[in-house]
Computed example of a mutant assay.
Amino acid sequence: MITQSAAGDSRAAEAAKEMAWEQLHSGPWHSVVPIWRDAYAMACLYVAKIHYSSGEFNLALKALDMGLIMGGFTLRDDLNLCIGKVSSALRGEAFSDNGESRRNSQWRMDLNMAEVRVINCKLRLYECMNNFDAKYLKVLRLLPVKSLSCKTVGKKSSLSLEGFLQDHLISGFPVIISNSMTHWPAKDRWNDMNYLKKVAGFRTVPVEVGKNYLCSEWKQELITFSEFLERIQSNDCSNADMSYLAQHQLFEQIQELKQDIVIPDYCFVGGGEMRSINAWFGPPGTVTPLHHDPHHNILAQVVGRKYIRLYPASISEELYPHSETMLSNSSQVDLDNIDDKEFPKVLDLEFVDCILEEGEMLYIPPKWWHYVRSLTTSFSVSFWWSDAPNSPDS
Rank of each mutant, 00 (worst) to 15 (best):
Q166P: 00
K156L: 12
N104K: 12
E350C: 07
Y371P: 03
P294K: 15
M274S: 13
L229P: 00
N212L: 07
L24S: 06
T74K: 14
Y213C: 15
G163F: 08
S226I: 05
D334N: 08
V139E: 03
F225H: 02
A388K: 11
S328H: 06
S238M: 07
P34C: 14
T152K: 12
K146L: 11
T182I: 11
D293M: 09
I277M: 12
R11T: 01
S331D: 04
W218K: 09
N58H: 04
L123V: 06
I232G: 04
Q220L: 04
S323A: 10
I277T: 15
D293T: 08
G72M: 07
L142R: 08
V205R: 02
K211I: 07
R103Q: 06
N98Q: 14
N235R: 13
Q247E: 13
Y307T: 13
L143G: 04
N104L: 11
L196V: 15
H370N: 05
D133A: 11
K146R: 06
Y126P: 01
G272W: 07
M19Q: 09
E342A: 13
W385L: 12
L229H: 01
A6Y: 00
L68N: 12
N337R: 05
Y195G: 05
D110M: 09
L142K: 05
W384Q: 12
N120P: 00
W369F: 12
E317P: 00
H292C: 13
A200C: 15
V139F: 11
R37I: 04
V116T: 11
F202T: 09
W369A: 10
L375V: 10
Y307C: 07
V333H: 04
V32E: 09
S10I: 00
P283Q: 10
S330F: 02
R108S: 05
G282A: 10
R37D: 06
F351G: 00
C44I: 07
F379C: 13
S331I: 08
S54I: 00
L165T: 03
G210F: 05
P312F: 12
M42V: 04
M1N: 10
H322Q: 03
I177N: 05
G285A: 05
K367D: 06
H296S: 07
Q247P: 05
G172C: 09
A388W: 06
S331C: 07
Y126H: 06
S216V: 07
L142T: 11
N239S: 11
G359M: 12
N212G: 03
S394T: 06
P174A: 07
Y136S: 02
V269T: 10
G201L: 10
Y320G: 01
Q301V: 09
G163Y: 08
P294W: 15
D110R: 03
E22D: 08
L214W: 07
A12G: 01
Y136D: 04
S5V: 00
E100K: 11
N337G: 01
N278E: 04
R373P: 00
A63Q: 03
C267H: 01
W280S: 06
A16V: 00
S394D: 08
N239M: 14
D9E: 15
V302C: 15
A313V: 06
E230L: 14
H168T: 03
G272C: 09
F173K: 12
P312E: 10
V209F: 10
S87P: 01
V287K: 05
M70L: 15
D78Q: 09
L123E: 10
S316F: 02
D265R: 03
A240D: 15
P185E: 14
C82P: 01
V139A: 11
S101D: 14
K345E: 11
V262I: 14
C150V: 06
T325G: 01
Y136V: 01
